[in-house]
Design a protein around this nucleic acid. Structure first.
Lengths: 338, 338
DNA sequence: TTTAGCACTCGCATTTCATGACTGCCATTA
DNA sequence: TAATGGCAGTCATGAAATGCGAGTGCTAAA
């Protein structure tokens, strides 16, 4: 049973532990947090909190450490989540530059998040299997290069600059894009390069410089289809005391490169200990890691970009969550403007 | 005096140490390398090599470890540097895609280098203070976006996609680029955004939607001017035994983000222990780190892109150097084709 | 000049021990 | 009856002690 006093004690323990990374003892709570109970009372309450699964003991003679269940309660009930003014100011630089690409803006914010939290942040792009091609355009820049613009059914766009070995004729570009638009519309992004292969005969027939164009498009499709996993600040983890052991770092780094893992990590549906907060961000706990994520909806569609922060369970949830919420709003605003 | 036998012993020690990361003792050399001398003889020779500065002792009862001077000799005289066929094959994927941007190709190779060597690799772009603007083009993609193409005096080009909040008129784009080309030609890239400020009154006068365009260009100029330092695979270092101490990792990571450091590191002129090999790559040693770099000349000009690999002095020099040489050649070839 | 042999050095892993920060429980108190 | 003071018990942590073994340097003999 979580009495008000136990909640009070739990909050103090989580706060202290997040701050110092050291197991918290009953004496600390009296002395440092001025709780109006004796240490013996607090010990009794801590024992109760442990029995209910909110706290853990690293070993007998240490203080208590919050369990993931404890963190979950803390995040759900005990954080207030407000964004600092100074933080908003720091971020305004990024979002004020209207001319910036949405992708760039997201990446930039990702970097800022890593810097500000000293954690690892990541972006998981729209699932390539769920998007299909709506339209392709190829705009010549000069005689040997062109921009390829691809638009998906969720109004998501991607750009890629092509550079050709030889000069390329405008007619060929037109013919080629006409064929592709005709034949590839509606194809899921993940199948594009495969389906492209089957168009080869057709292109050979109608397009003189088919080879260069073909290679260029295949390259572009591969890029567009790849699960856009991007992450940043992995090396920040060396500053986290929970990673002072190199082996832990290694295992963490190994996990990062696997995008399916990221998806799973933040898939609140399957995770028992996950939590969906009111403001939008979600939190999930796995072993001694916590993942805070925020889905950015793209033009009100189902498909979305997921902004994430990963770190040890011992993280400043209020800071991270408010940051993620704020940035999520900003990015959605940019999307709306477009 | 480096007799042939001492060289033989030195080579064996360096080989063994690179392989095992353990100080090498006289017995190992006899048993594992089958050197036709007794361990006592080898001990004498090792003492001599140490006296001349090619070897070091971590402590009395350990084996010997190569000093940086030892590595230098090793690299200069004892490596043969040939690229594996399988490596060439692995890289051919990257360079065969002609449509790829040179910048992309370089970045991709950088990643491959990191993966293949388990070291950190980096790219140092042309020095922005040494390049000046030759020409700007702004090509509309659709009503709200355009590609900005910037060409420098060393025929280096950069692209950036602009996204505007409102529709933008073609006349405005034309007027704006005309003014910029007229007024900014010859300006060093590093001064562009500053000088842009002084053009504001002029733009206000002639261009209706000057504000959006102005912001977009300033953003682009900042990007073009920034010292293009890019590096990859820093987290590989956790697999290197010399970084099993977290503190070392921290200090290493701290250094990486400083581009002036990278420049200095590979500035063979100032570094005593640096080495310029015949094939092109340079090696420098600083403390217990080694940096192998390869300058890629851009269109025969003085200005260049520098491809680098950093790691502990104990690295597989022949592998790294041959890789860097090979990739350097490939990239120069792409540049020539353009 | 090379080699065998031996004494010596020193890092490293292991053990032992003392310390102190906790807890848990019980008897006492308000 | 809930809160508290007190005390015994636990266990990580760090320091000092110990033994081991890899490797050296030196000397004397081949």
């Amino acid at each position: 049973m979580l009495t008000a006093r136990r909640v009070e004690i739990l909050k103090a323990i989580v706060d202290e532990f997040i701050d110092t990374a050291q197991p918290v003892g009953s004496k600390t709570l009296v002395e440092k947090y001025g709780l109006p109970y004796s240490s013996a009372t607090i010990r009794n309450e801590m024992a109760a909190l442990e029995a209910e699964g909110y706290l853990e003991k690293p070993h007998t003679s240490a203080g208590r450490v919050p369990s993931n269940k404890g963190y979950r309660f803390y995040v759900e009930n005990l954080t207030e989540k407000e964004v600092d003014e100074e933080v908003k100011y720091a971020l305004s630089n990024i979002f004020d530059r209207q001319s910036m690409n949405v992708e760039e803006a997201i990446r930039e914010s990702c970097k800022v998040i890593s810097d500000m939290t000293s954690l690892t942040s990541g972006i998981l792009g729209p699932d390539a299997t769920k998007q299909s091609l709506e339209h392709i355009q190829l705009i010549p820049i000069d005689k040997r290069s062109a921009v390829c613009v691809l638009i998906t059914n969720v109004a998501h766009t991607e750009h890629k600059v092509f550079n050709f070995a030889e000069e390329i004729s405008v007619e060929d570009i037109k013919k080629c894009t006409d064929i592709l638009n005709d034949r590839l519309k509606g194809t899921p992004l993940s199948d594009l390069s495969e389906k492209m292969e089957s168009l080869k005969p057709l292109l050979v027939q109608h397009v003189r410089q088919y080879e260069m164009l073909f290679d260029a498009f295949v390259g572009a499709f591969v890029k567009f289809a790849s699960d856009t996993l991007y992450f940043n600040g992995a090396s920040n983890m060396i500053y986290q005391p929970e990673f002072s052991d190199i082996e832990r770092l290694k295992s963490f780094m190994g996990k990062l490169n696997d995008s399916s893992l990221w998806r799973e990590l933040t898939d609140t549906g399957t995770r028992q200990l996950a939590l969906k907060t009111s403001k939008g961000s979600e939190v999930a706990w796995v072993d001694d890691l916590a993942v805070v994520s925020n889905d950015i909806r793209v033009n009100g569609q189902e498909d979305k970009v997921r902004l994430m922060v990963v770190g040890p369970s011992r993280m400043k949830y209020d800071k991270v969550m408010s940051l993620l919420d704020f940035i999520g709003q900003q990015i959605e605003k940019i999307y709306e403007e477009k």
